[in-house]
């Protein structure tokens, strides 16, 4: 029993670690606040589930989850070419809400608010990942792969170019960086991994509905990124571990379950406020936004 509980937490940590790493690529490295990240997560989940339940193999559903999300990432990069800072953030938020609205209303495809129950566990190379332990192995492999790929990309010239865009787009462009293309790639790669996370989430929980992909989901992932430190992959993983574990003790002090959910959110939100005021660079990050004064005039 306790083993199952711990494995459950570990699996959640893995799924959120993928999400937070994918978000830090956009928000931490490139400096674009994405408030619609849960939409990529959702698109991945629905794409994978709909394909697998239509009879396609899991590996195809998993790859399609990333691929379809990446296509939407390219779409969402269009506003980023024209908008900066908080206006881009609001545009991404509107994007996320439009996607959620479509999930709720396109009932022929998604069953709307009823959700999709009975999602099968994944099957790869003849192995069915139906036990907690095997599922954990599957998710940790994806986490490691995500880390290795993103680490390779972000430590190389791609990562440096993204940081240059974050610091000053005009100068990056004057040095020959194709800013538009780079932003599009950043959005696509970020969405790709969020889509993979969506697939893993859906086939683990075995039920999805639009309420799993709200703004507060994005805010939780954002908090992981800010807590770990913007622009740090290790920090993003640490943020996921801490924030999944942090509210767990609330379960054991005998509160009614409805209150646990609210207290959890209160802790998250309060922590986020204290964090950005007191330690904006997070645990492992570089303090890059601390010194930048928004040009208001």
């Amino acid at each position: 029993m306790i083993e199952a509980y711990l494995l459950h937490l570990l699996i959640l940590i893995c799924i959120y670690a993928i999400l937070s790493m994918s978000l830090t690529l956009l928000t931490g490295y490139t400096g674009m606040l994405n408030l619609g990240h849960a939409a990529f997560f959702a698109i991945g989940a629905y794409a994978s589930v709909l394909l697998v339940m239509a009879g396609f193999p899991f590996w195809l559903g998993f790859l399609a989850a990333g691929g379809v999300a990446a296509l939407f990432g390219v779409l969402l990069s269009i506003p980023s070419l024209r908008l900066r800072g908080d206006f881009l953030a609001i545009a991404t938020l509107a994007f996320g809400e439009i996607i959620r609205s479509i999930m709720l209303n396109w009932t022929e495809l998604t069953r709307g608010p009823l959700g999709i129950p009975g999602i099968p566990k994944p099957e790869l190379f003849g192995i069915v990942f139906d036990s907690m332990l095997t599922y954990f192995v599957l998710t940790i492999v994806v986490v490691l792969a995500t880390y290795v790929v993103l680490k390779y990309l972000l430590d190389g010239k791609f990562g440096i170019a993204l940081k240059a865009i974050r610091e000053n787009e005009l100068i990056a462009e004057s040095l020959g960086k194709d800013v538009k293309m780079l932003k599009m790639q950043a959005f696509a790669i970020s969405a790709l991994f969020a889509g993979f996370a969506g697939s893993l989430f859906a086939h683990y929980i075995t039920f999805i509905d639009p309420s799993s992909f709200t703004l507060s989901e994005t805010v939780l992932v954002l908090l992981m990124v800010v807590l770990g430190g913007l622009g740090s992959l290790v920090g993003s993983i640490a943020g996921a571990i801490i924030l999944i574990l942090l509210p767990e003790p609330l379960r054991f002090i005998g509160l009614p379950s409805s209150m646990v959910g609210q207290l959890r959110q209160i802790i998250y939100a309060g922590l986020l406020i204290v964090l950005i005021i007191k330690r904006p660079k997070g645990l492992f990050g570089e303090q890059w936004f601390g010194g930048i004064v928004s040009d208001s005039s």
Binding site: L33, R84, G85, D86, A89, I90, L222, V226, L272, I276, P280, F289, G290, I292, V293, S294
Partner: peptide
Amino acid sequence: QHVWIGLI
């Protein structure tokens, strides 16, 4: 602070 810190 950076423009979107206030938003967060």
